[in-house]
Design a protein around this nucleic acid. Sequence first.
RNA 1: GCUCGGUUCGUAUAACGGUUAGUACCCAAGAUUCUCAAUCUUGUAAUAGGAGUUCGAUUCUCCUACCGAGUACCA
Length: 578
Amino acid sequence: MERRTRVRFAPSPTGPLHMGGVRTALYNYLYAKQHGGDFIIRIEDTDSHRFVPGAEEYIIESLRWCGIIPDEGVDQDGKVVETASERHPHAPYRQSQRKPIYRKYAEQLVENGYAYYAFDTAEELDAIRAKAEAAGETFTYNQKSRLSLRNSLSLSAEETARLLEETDTWTVRFKMPENEIVKMDDLIRGHVEVNTDTLDDKVLWKRADELPTYHLANIVDDHLMEISEVIRGEEWLPSLPLHYMLYKAFGWTETQPRFAHLPLLLKPVGNGKLSKRDGDKMGFPVFPLQWVNSEGEKSRGYREDGYFPDAFVNLLTMLGWNPGTEQEIFSMEELVNAFSLDKVGKSGAKFNPEKAKWFNKEYLRMKTDKELTEAFIPVLAQHGINVTPCEKGPDGACIHELKADFAGKTFSKFYVKSLVSLIKERATFVADFWDIASYLFISPAEFEAYGVKAGAANAKPADPRAAADPRAKVFDDAATAPFLAKDADKFWKPDSSAMAIEAAAHVCAMEGDFTKEAVETALEEYIRGKEWPMGKVMNCLRLALTGASSGLGIADIVSFIGRDEFAARMEYIKNRLG
RNA sequence: GCUCGGUUCGUAUAACGGUUAGUACCCAAGAUUCUCAAUCUUGUAAUAGGAGUUCGAUUCUCCUACCGAGUACCA
């Protein structure tokens, strides 16, 4: 029987969606699109106690950021769909709004002998459980114990009717049959069999809040919404037999969806599933977007950490799925074509933050210089750098000119774009551009010791002399200011520094434009002509230009900052370090 | 405890029952360069253990070990 593919992602709004949840949504989305079907978002908010304000909005926004757009769901084009319509005959998509639907299905099961009324209160059951545990046993509400508990199976019809009328804490429980083998098929795990004797009588509906539990709501909604495949996390595999029994009890086995249980996402080191704590501890996000809880605690998000949504989607898809080829980089469109459930693995996947970064790096390289420039401008603004839009020439076209005003902290967009083009292969995130090339926007006031890594050096206290120096004011951002080591002169040696100063003076005196090629040729020819050690002289220049012992090529730097700034930086280091 | 799932280099994974067990990330070395990064080349490293079926097992079966999930009037 051919039937339209309809899959759903059904989160519970009890907190932010974590990356495992995003992956589940993504697999559902890819499956739907590949089969030309519908992807539906349904909110499972049947637990009034655990509702978290803002969680639903967070979930929708996260999926939207990832490019996972529902065909049907609570939110359509920014508008909440609350009632059924021609376009949305299956609405509403929030279970709390479907409340009236479930009761009759629960009652239907009781009438047909598949379920019964139970009058034990939650407190009574807690007490029984505690007692059993103290005796070293486990209490289960099942075919063995049900007749000794208070329910419509053990009580008289009159007593049942009276309690139904007079109390409002009763529930409807599924009457799990005895010694029956449930035979199930999972699209990922294959055939699975379970004996019903190992299962318990689950609560399906609660009189107290007149809401169904997950199991009932899920089966009823999947049926009414004509879901063809249920793709969900592995944690649901143990409830699959119950779900099979429910479809059978309702008489819906003909249209029962097919099931696929996805492997879990595990923590990078050690054992267990990925949790928020792992991210905090190891420095990577576990949430797609930043989340601030009611106590004001922030959890980082992939978006805020600088990941591109397409990179995030790509890396998430590869956790537990493979294309069967050696291709690793996929656009959403390619994923839609390549995805298949039978290439999804069975075992849990440990998340590797290093590989996640690698994906972002690959995506960053694929972005155009224009895109990256636009993304970098806000980062520059955070560091107090202004970028002027392109200036129109007489013919109306943009003038591509490297304009740098260090005193005014203002640079032309072409300057930024050219720079981005030069350094994008070195970065993982757009924010890295600043760390890589901040010296192309601000003059170094301090000088890192030769061989001292920037990270370690920044941890040391700055030289007090710097504060007294007017040029040091250029660095109002202490965190990015290169560090002046006490022994910077270990590197800035009298002989090589004199050579660097002389070579720089020669280059500054040359005529013509300060292009990279011109500077490179002039500088190298001069140094070679003098038979000076190229490495030592170049490194002295680098210290003067960047304040650090590593960085871009000298000719690149000089061509960017220009003649005047080059001369000024040489003059400054000469005065500072002698 | 019980039930159900799972197990290939450190990690993600590939391999009709027949391969020198492949690829990517990480790590290391070399090349290159004015440094760093990038790039290129090379390298280290795995079928959890034990039986069985078979001419032949990473692949099929069973046992053990380990890991995970579930065991709520939560999803």
